[in-house]
Amino acid sequence: MTDTNTQARSWLDAMGLHHPLVIAGPCSAETEEQLLTIAHALKQTKTTVLRAGLWKPRTRPGNFEGVGALGLPWLQRAKAETGLLTTTEVAHPHHVELALAHDVDILWIGARTTVSPFIVQDIADALKGTGKTVLIKNPVNPDLALWMGAIERFEKSGITQLGAIHRGFSSYEKNKYRNTPEWQIAIDFQSRCDVPLILDPSHMGGRRDLIFDLSQTALDLNYDGLMIESHHTPDLAWSDAAQQITPEELHQIITALQVRKPQGEALEYQNQLKALRTQIDISDHQIIETLGRRMKVAGQIGQLKKDNNVAILQSDRWYAILEKMINEGTHLGLSEEFVQKLFKAIHQESINQQKVD
């Protein structure tokens, strides 16, 4: 990243918060009364920024796609009455123009927009010289380079006040999340890009009962804040009702979250941690050695199949192995999702090893 990245945290530091940043508000601004009611309720929590979607890029047409520019004066009034900063999603240079004209404080780039370098560049160009803070959501697909590339486009356009939002990634495999967390991608992002990282547990989980655990995990991974959808009557929301919580529930969650120390200093703690990490290092070495031996055998099987003109993939055996490993993993306290991902990766590498020239 460029030298401007050292300035990326200035907007967050300037807030002087003694707790993680909280961005909250409805998935969609529905009416002026609705937005003002929610804003005043959120003012009683640790919320600093009021979010509200105005332009809603839905997966399929026919669903509510937002009130559009009609909601911008509502955001202005909410800001004037509560003192909360405001943010909304922009997906087009015209959205940027309208948001700037109505003094929206922070703009965010949605996951469906981040996937298109062309659109990202158009928005970045529209923001040149504005000094606005921009938050970029991860792309829908698990592509770290695409996420970082979007941030770099804003940097190169002179936008120095930046942040990233982790909202999870689409997956064709069913699991309990609306969008799979893929925490390792976010961890890799943190190691390469020094901008504030914010979790969106609402879109990640897709269910309000998952918000607390996802939020706590994010704080345990040193995230800088949370973007949580909040509605005064969530079950009646015009979009994404299942993942929204009331301002009162938001207050309870934020109060219950634990912000842990980055490091433990006690000598006993350090000694115990070192001993446990040594055990992990030994186990990791054993895992790699075992996988190496397994792949050598896979290569031998590949040669045997080639010599006998047999196809590499034996579906019945593969599914039997997967089912057996899931059962064994479950008994050992491993999640089915983890075991599936692990053995699918092992199976793919085994296929690669069996491709004998």
Rank of each mutant, 00 (worst) to 15 (best):
H285N: 14
L250P: 04
H285Y: 10
E268N: 12
E265N: 14
R260Y: 01
I287E: 05
I282V: 15
L257H: 07
I280S: 03
L276I: 09
K261Y: 00
A266D: 11
V259Y: 00
A266C: 04
K274D: 14
I253P: 07
I280M: 10
Q270P: 02
E249Q: 13
Q286G: 06
I287V: 14
Q279S: 07
V259E: 02
L267F: 02
R277E: 10
L267E: 03
N271E: 11
H285F: 13
G264D: 00
L267Q: 03
D281A: 09
Q279L: 06
I287D: 04
Q252R: 13
I287T: 10
T278W: 12
I253E: 05
R260D: 02
L273T: 12
G264K: 00
I245W: 03
A256C: 03
T278I: 11
T246D: 05
T246M: 09
H251K: 15
D284G: 03
I282G: 04
G264A: 04
R277H: 11
A266N: 08
K274G: 10
L257S: 04
I253C: 05
I245T: 05
G264F: 00
L273V: 08
L273D: 06
Q272G: 07
A266E: 06
Q244C: 03
E268F: 13
N271Q: 15
Q272S: 08
Y269Q: 06
Q244K: 02
Q272K: 12
T278N: 15
L250G: 04
P262W: 00
L250K: 07
Q258C: 11
K274Q: 15
P262G: 01
L267P: 00
Q270W: 00
I253Q: 05
T278Q: 14
Q252N: 15
Q286W: 03
T278M: 14
H251F: 14
S283C: 11
Q272P: 02
N271K: 10
A266Q: 12
N271Y: 05
T246R: 07
A275P: 04
D281L: 03
E265F: 15
S283K: 12
Q279K: 14
T255K: 08
Q258V: 14
K261Q: 03
Q272E: 11
T278P: 03
G264P: 02
P262E: 02
T255S: 08
Q272H: 11
Q263M: 03
I287M: 06
L257C: 06
P262M: 01
E268K: 13
A275W: 10
V259A: 00
N271M: 10
D281P: 01
T278L: 15
D284Y: 11
I253W: 05
I280P: 03
Q252C: 09
P262R: 01
Q244R: 01
I282R: 07
D281Q: 08
N271T: 11
I280D: 05
K261L: 01
H285T: 15
L250Q: 08
P262F: 00
I245E: 09
E249F: 02
I245S: 06
